[in-house]
Each structure stands twice: as structure tokens, then as C-alpha cells.
Design a protein around this nucleic acid. Structure first.
Length: 193
DNA sequence: GTGTGGCAGTTAG
DNA sequence: CTAACTGCCACAC
């Protein structure tokens, strides 16, 4: 839906919740995640790619110039231990609650793709082709790939568990990160060749 | 291994 | 509307 994000910001204003968001990068070993956190401590955007993080901020500020971003120290980040556990191999606490306006702002195809990705269990994976088919597009593997790239909630929507027919495929945060995530899940052998 | 043509969905103009 | 882009795929060398 096209105006979903704008409506979301208006709804926040009316509810008196303000338009201040947390914008921060947190590191866990070799992994760095870029987060946008809204009211109620909701993670609304999560990515491994700094440019994707900036784009998301620009989208919000472009819709309402009252939007402000503030920093938050890593130790004060509500989900710090959850991610710390995740990146040391305990994935039991993910996925977190998914309540991001960026999901509703996606096209219907993107939302179908993201929903199917969310259903991929820890430690396993599917191909872009299979993903496209389950989203109702028989030959849309490439389109499914671009939809993965537009995923606003990396890790929570585990797009790293989608691979190409003949190898890893791509990843916005860098292929080394994708590979490391699969290794973390002991999924590397199942997923690549 | 590399090259190439085709593919579907999205976006910009 | 066309054109240009992708986290792709199949099929050739």
C-alpha cells in the first residue's frame, strides 16, 4: 500500500507518541546490524547494509519533517541480549514480534514473498525459484530476489535462508555475512551444494 | 568455468 | 507508456 508509511506517522502523531525514532548500529563480533526502533520499542527496520539503513531513514523524514532520530547506547538497547545470544548460536528467541510499517508499505508481491520467507525454519533454506513459486509467480525467481533485497527486517525475516540454484545467490549486507549466518545455523552444507 | 538471452516485478521519467 | 534496473535461471559453448 502506497500511503501506509504516511498513515503510520499520522497515527503516531494523533496518539501523541511523537515521531522520534532510535537509529543505531550495533556490533556483535563480525556482525553489525543497523536498527530503526519506533514507539513501544518496536523494531521497524533492521538491515546489515548501511545504505539500506540510510534509505529507510530518508523515506521517513521525506514523509514528515518532524521525524527525528536519536542514538541509543548498545547496552540500553532492549534486544541487545537477544541478538547477542543469536550471534553466539542461540536462536531460540527469534523471531521477535514483527510489527513494522515497512511491511505494510510493501507491494502485495513483496508481502507474499516476505511472509513465505518467515516460514523457513531455522537451519534450512529454499531457492529463489521455490520462493517465487510459493508466492504465486511461476517464473519470477529474479523478482523474488529483488523482493528479498527490499526486505525491511533482515534476520527476523530470514532472507539469508534463500539461495540460488547454483550457489549462494546475493545478499545486501555482503555475501560473507550471508555465508556466516548460514554457518551459524549449521545450514551451510544443506544449502550450498 | 564464461557468455547470453530471457524472465517477472518495481521504479523513474 | 517505455526503459532500466536487479540478491535469477537455463543453456549453450
Amino acid at each position: 500500500m502506497k500511503n501506509f508509511l504516511k498513515n503510520y506517522l499520522q497515527k503516531l502523531s494523533k496518539a501523541g507518541l511523537g515521531l522520534d525514532f532510535v537509529s543505531a548500529a550495533y556490533s556483535y563480533g563480525k556482525f553489525t546490524i543497523y536498527c530503526l526502533v519506533g514507539p513501544e520499542e518496536n523494531i521497524i527496520h533492521l538491515t546489515f547494509a548501511s545504505n539500506g539503513h540510510e534509505m529507510a531513514q530518508k523515506r521517513l523524514i521525506g514523509l514528515d519533517n518532524n521525524v527525528v532520530f536519536r542514538a541509543l547506547k548498545q547496552e540500553d538497547f532492549r534486544y541487545n541480549t537477544v541478538f547477542k545470544d543469536y550471534f553466539t548460536g542461540d536462536l531460540s528467541k527469534l523471531p521477535l514480534k514483527i510489527d513494522s510499517p515497512f511491511i505494510g508499505a510493501g507491494t502485495s508481491f513483496q508481502q507474499r514473498v516476505w511472509r513465505h520467507i518467515s516460514a523457513i525454519p531455522y537451519g534450512s533454506c529454499i531457492t529463489y525459484r521455490e520462493l517465487a513459486e510459493s508466492a504465486g509467480s511461476h517464473k519470477g525467481a529474479r523478482a523474488a530476489g529483488t523482493a528479498c533485497g527490499a526486505n525491511p527486517l533482515a534476520l527476523i525475516i530470514p532472507c539469508h535462508r534463500v539461495v540460488a540454484q547454483n550457489g549462494l545467490g546475493g545478499f545486501a549486507g555482503g555475501l560473507d555475512i550471508k555465508k556466516s549466518l548460514l554457518t551459524l545455523e549449521n545450514a551451510e552444507n544443506n544449502c550450498i551444494e
